[in-house]
Design a binder for these strands. Structure first.
Lengths: 202, 202
DNA sequence: TCACGATACGGACCGGCGGTCCACATCGGC
DNA sequence: GCCGATGTGGACCGCCGGTCCGTATCGTGA
């Protein structure tokens, strides 16, 4: 066991991740076999399993850097999504950021949920933003049942729920986004469309 | 093509459905192969495929009579869940009936959703109770966005969402049920626990 | 009762999957 | 340049859902 990883191994890891990301995105996760990825990356199938263990771990490995980027944005980025902004703006910015992340990675997220039931809520890389959401809700909704609200919002943010609204019910993305913000304030009338537009364009 | 079906064929259909229902229930849908079902039913694998077409259709066939029973209850049963009762009671009774159905058949429903994305909302045997829910909401919430409310409630009734709350978060069934009823009336305080108990015991 | 076409049966068989194995190639410190 | 540690790749494995077809069973009309 030398320090980290041999040079050729690192090269192959990168090639596999790139090939997997491209094929998953292009053809849908379920349509891509491990053999496809191996061929496309120019490596043997055994190499993939040696690097990543199994199919589930490979999917996670493709998703991980994207989740980490979002996490960095939330924890160290500029306000309003990063720390230091006005609480209400911070909550809405977080919702938008989560929504964008879920939408952009919906195929990977759905595939993971498919292979590891409840991973959407229970997976460690999900927990942190569920907790962050709860934290911001506690500030903006000090008198409500924030655990309950967190659950409602995180369910509305499920990749398959959003996907259904858009691809089966034909809702526009901004409609779904507006519904999400409205859900956070169930007892006030929904904001005017102009407000919603201003927020989601930023 | 004689009239309906030969006697041995009908016998086998029943045996297959019974075997599938038992194994799905006992071991979980994903753990049961078509060979398992064939062996357990005492028929050849070919017979299953001849009768039902493919695995998805077999799962649907196991679920169908249960959904039909619920449908009968809602359309022809005694009030409050059947027609003729007081609107508010009718809505709550429907929510309870749907909740019980989803919980009792959560493994089958999840397996179907797994094989046919969005089937939970889009499948014909789901449509009718989504429509019924919307109908009753229109009566009890004449001034609200009932389409939106229907979506929120049907999402809260997803088999995987309920399953997560119970099996991962450790919520009691009656808590989840209470949350469902509360969701239908977001702007009034939740009913006292006594009310909830009275309703769900009936 | 029997004969015969229509129908159903069942398990060998197929292609493809995720995952394993191991003879061989490649790396990199000395 | 040597040599043990590390990495490689594709043949191979068991299993899956699904098909095929020679054989068995049904039920009708005579």
């Amino acid at each position: 066991m030398t320090g980290p990883e041999r040079a050729d191994a690192a090269r192959n890891r990168a090639a596999i991740l790139a090939a997997a990301a491209e094929l998953f995105d292009r053809d849908g996760v379920e349509e891509v076999s491990m053999n496809d990825i191996a061929r496309h990356a120019g490596v043997g199938k055994g190499t993939i399993f040696r690097r990543f263990g199994d199919r589930t771990a490979l999917i996670e490995a493709v998703l991980l850097p994207r989740a980490a980027a979002m996490r960095r944005l939330v924890h160290h980025g500029p306000p309003p999504v990063g720390p230091g902004g006005e609480p209400l703006e911070a909550l809405h910015a977080l919702l938008d950021t989560l929504f964008d992340f879920v939408w952009a990675n919906r195929t990977l997220i759905r595939a993971l949920e498919h292979r590891v039931p409840h991973s959407y809520y229970a997976h460690s890389s999900s927990r942190y933003w569920l907790d962050e959401l709860a934290r911001r809700l506690t500030v903006t909704h000090p008198h409500d049942d924030t655990e309950y609200l967190t659950h409602i919002l995180s369910t509305a943010l499920r990749a398959d729920v959003v996907d259904y609204l858009v691809s089966v019910r034909g809702m526009a993305l901004d409609q779904v986004r507006a519904g999400l913000h409205r859900l956070a304030f169930p007892c006030v009338p929904p904001p005017s469309l102009a407000d919603v537009d201003r927020r989601s364009v930023s």
